[in-house]
Simulated scan of single mutants.
Amino acid sequence: MPTPASRRRTRERLAELRGPAVPPRPLDARALAALAANPGCRRRALLDGAGVDKGALASRLGSPAPFGQSQFAIVRGNSFEAKVKADGGRELLRLLGVEDPGAVSVPDLSASGPEGRTARTALALREATAGDGWTLLDHPLLTLEVAGSPVHLEPDAVVVDPAGRWTVVEIKSFPMIDGSADAAKVGAAARQAAVYVLALERVAALTEGAEVRHSVLLVCPKDFSNLPTASAVDVRKQRAVTRRQLERLTRIDEIAEALPEGLSFDVQGRSAEELSAAVEAVPHAYAPECLAACELGFHCRSRAREEEAVQTLGRSVRGELGGLTTIGAVLAAARGGGGAPRASEAESSGEGGPEDPAVAALRRAWALRQEALAEAEAAACR
């Protein structure tokens, strides 16, 4: 268990890595969901934990990523959210299926600093659970410990019913057409909501009579209008996966302490060459999915391609190839030239050799390809 002194040392070390004059970029549920999807990437874990602006860092490295929303989309999203929460929360409760909620309590959650807001949210949740009416918490602030560091999370809303059940509400601007929305976007929203559920469960464990529902309310525009419609989304699977992945994350303090002194990701005070060297000092676990979830995805892809790493072909392919870690080694194994260089003990075990199932499958596929090419060439000559 980290001590207060070790936590303070970790915060100081992360501030050094980020740059003393650079304010930390806070993590959010979307980033945590993406981080949990790739728990083996030490690079992202460290940069997110240190609060480094990965978008600015990617631009300095020459590989900017097309992330972010347009100003028009942000304004439209804010307008839609205000419409959903209109009438003192009664409109949102109608979407939840409550036609006559009576008086709806909307407590003031403002406080000084994130710690104050977190404490105020926890108090409001306890008071709402002990009450006998409906309560709407507008943008509450929750805390979840990730890799030894606290992360503050802000869901769109949390509804507490008279029975003490807490429901997470996710408000999105993508449309729900004929009762269904884009599956990929719904999946991303479910993973994001699962992070909020995990954070709420920490508060519920200290609140008598509280229960966090694993069915969240997803609110979207109906068809092509600005009218809100809603659907319940079961996030039990996403919650279990996210919890397991977050628990497996390597501790940020261990990653930071392993780096050489003087290394920094300060995009304002370091040259592009220094930043590139700093980034390469931290191991990464690139996968094609990173392009849609991480600002450094294009930079990591470029490096993986330079190394001919099989990760560029996807996680499933990487898993099937076992000890063959480069595309060159894969082609050599398929042609019968052996696998990747490896230690003598690995060679004696047969891994990467002819008895390796991956090598045997590659050679069989290569032989079939050569037969098909020979048949095609013979047919063309006739």
Rank of each mutant, 00 (worst) to 15 (best):
Q71M: 10
I74K: 15
V75W: 14
G77T: 12
N78P: 00
S79V: 13
S79E: 14
S79C: 11
F80K: 01
F80S: 02
E81T: 07
E81D: 11
K83T: 14
A86V: 13
A86R: 15
D87G: 07
D87V: 10
G88V: 04
G88F: 14
G88K: 13
R90K: 14
R90Q: 10
E91N: 15
E91V: 08
L92G: 02
L93I: 02
L93P: 01
R94N: 03
R94K: 14
R94H: 09
L96F: 15
G97H: 14
E99D: 10
E99L: 12
A103R: 15
A103Q: 13
A103G: 08
D108I: 00
D108Y: 11
L109G: 01
L109T: 01
A111D: 00
A111I: 04
A111S: 10
A111V: 00
G113C: 07
G113H: 09
P114N: 13
E115N: 11
E115L: 10
E115C: 06
E115F: 05
R117N: 00
T118D: 00
A119E: 02
A119W: 07
R120N: 01
A122I: 00
A122K: 10
L123H: 03
L123T: 11
L125S: 00
R126C: 03
A128T: 01
T129N: 04
A130C: 05
A130R: 13
G131A: 11
W134A: 04
L137N: 01
D138C: 03
H139C: 03
P140N: 03
L142W: 02
T143Q: 11
L144H: 06
L144S: 03
L144E: 00
V146W: 01
A147F: 05
G148A: 09
G148Q: 03
S149M: 13
P150W: 00
L153Q: 06
L153H: 04
E154A: 08
E154Q: 10
P155F: 06
A157H: 12
V158E: 01
V159N: 04
R165M: 03
W166D: 02
V168C: 05
V169G: 04
V169D: 08
E170T: 15
I171D: 09
I171S: 12
I171F: 14
I171N: 13
K172Y: 13
K172V: 11
S173P: 05
P175S: 06
P175V: 01
I177V: 13
G179C: 07
G179Q: 04
S180H: 07
A181I: 10
A181D: 15
D182Y: 05
A183F: 05
A183V: 00
A184V: 14
V186T: 15
V186S: 06
G187N: 15
G187D: 15
A188W: 09
A189W: 12
A190M: 06
A190T: 11
Q192V: 11
A193D: 12
A193Q: 13
A193L: 07
V195Y: 08
V195K: 09
V195T: 11
V195I: 14
Y196V: 01
V197W: 09
V197H: 12
L198T: 04
L198P: 03
A199W: 07
L200R: 07
E201I: 03
R202W: 01
V203I: 13
V203C: 03
A205L: 02
T207S: 03
E208N: 09
G209H: 14
A210T: 09
E211I: 11
V212L: 06
V212M: 11
V212S: 04
R213V: 07
H214T: 04
H214V: 05
S215V: 13
